[in-house]
Nucleic acid binder design. Structure first.
Lengths: 218, 218
DNA sequence: ACCTGAACACCGTTCAAGT
DNA sequence: ACCTGAACACCGTTCAAGT
């Protein structure tokens, strides 16, 4: 039989998480799918938390960004954010995973963060400001990726669309005098807007705030 | 004996969540603290999810923002964000709660959202843009509140500070050639920056992005 | 080094029954 | 209306033991 390896476990976890949601990823379920005892996993991972950390690292893996000393920082930061969003969009469960783990324990995420920090420093921000801004940017990128895709199930699935329909109707049947705008915009709220809007507008939104602050101190 | 009521349950949950973390809030633990059978809670809440929704609603309760037709939208949106951050800072577990629940199921959060949507429309954004921006703003406010306070335990507690110390050392002992900036800024990264910086800088960061976009389309 | 068996201390939830 | 008892189907994790 194929040997049980960290890689294999993480990949199986990704499969389960992507089409049944992260809450379906349990030690026991994972073991069952891999044809092994639950305790076998404890040889490869200290505990479940570390398994999810491994999953997170696997997700961000492959997205390598390095600081380029000659190109302008704005351009590079923008690419970093856009790239992260793109990577997270590839897996439905990616956002839930990143939300659950402590980012500081994820090596590949730390690498992205390191680059972001360097670019903030290059922009002329202080240490404290750079910390705040980089946190804000990465968190913002994750939030952006969360907004569009349905996190529990793929938008393509029947259950996903049915759930969206129910939610839309729920919003629409809210008291109109209390929540006038929610009722009016129920459809775009639950369905999210077009992907193009997200890619251009969302990243712009994040970067504009930072660029304005940088200019102000220049 | 004091009667078991929704209010009492939620308040107990808040107590537990605030000083032991949200993961300590379980149906069984809650029942034990309240001197009642676990199943008693199911009379007042459909399930655990709805209990947490109730908790979330309780947290945002009291933060009422209403649209003022005469004052400029920028000012109002800024107050909305700053106010939400202030409210969330009052309870250590607030951020975890808001991250766990579906915001659309929390009445008082919907009210804040409704106001935000109205202000976005007033700023001249389209339906789709207003949805994106309001989501981004509220999510951003939550993220800002998360950054500063330690979410698992109060910063004042011994365990909290010890955990921060360990984390700082972990970051500092990372390979310096791979993560130069992380190593260099380990201290401010784990400790977070001063609250004043957060309040002024963080909210500015969020608002600047939006104001820039609004001006651009004017 | 890598995995199993059995056990422990938990979960959320249902359903019938009590008052 | 409001709560209990007993049971079900799950969790993560430890620890000694097997190969």
């Amino acid at each position: 039989m194929g040997k049980l390896t960290r890689e294999a476990v993480v990949e199986r976890a990704l499969l389960i998480g992507d089409d049944e949601g992260l809450q379906a990823v349990t030690i026991r379920r994972l073991a069952q799918d891999l044809g092994v005892t639950p305790m076998a996993l404890y040889w490869h991972f200290k505990n479940k938390e570390q398994l999810i950390v491994g999953l997170a690292d696997h997700l961000v893996h492959g997205f390598v960004v390095t600081e380029d000393p000659v190109r302008p920082w704005q351009e590079q930061l923008r690419e970093l954010v856009a790239g992260l969003v793109r990577v997270l969009r590839r897996h439905p469960c990616a956002v839930s995973v990143l939300e659950e783990v402590d980012h500081m324990e994820v090596p590949h995420f730390l690498h992205v963060w390191n680059t972001a920090l360097g670019l903030c420093r290059k922009a002329g921000f202080t240490y404290e400001e750079s910390c705040l801004i980089s946190k804000y940017l990465l968190q913002g990128a994750i939030a952006l990726s969360a907004g569009q895709v349905n996190r529990k199930a793929g938008v393509t699935s029947k259950e996903g669309r049915e759930a969206a329909r129910v939610k839309r109707i729920t919003l629409q049947s809210l008291p109109q005098d209390v929540y006038p705008h929610i009722v009016e915009m129920a459809a775009p709220l639950v369905e999210g807007c077009s992907t193009e809007l997200y890619d251009t507008f969302g990243v712009d939104l994040l970067m504009n705030g930072i660029e304005t602050l940088a200019e102000r101190r220049a």
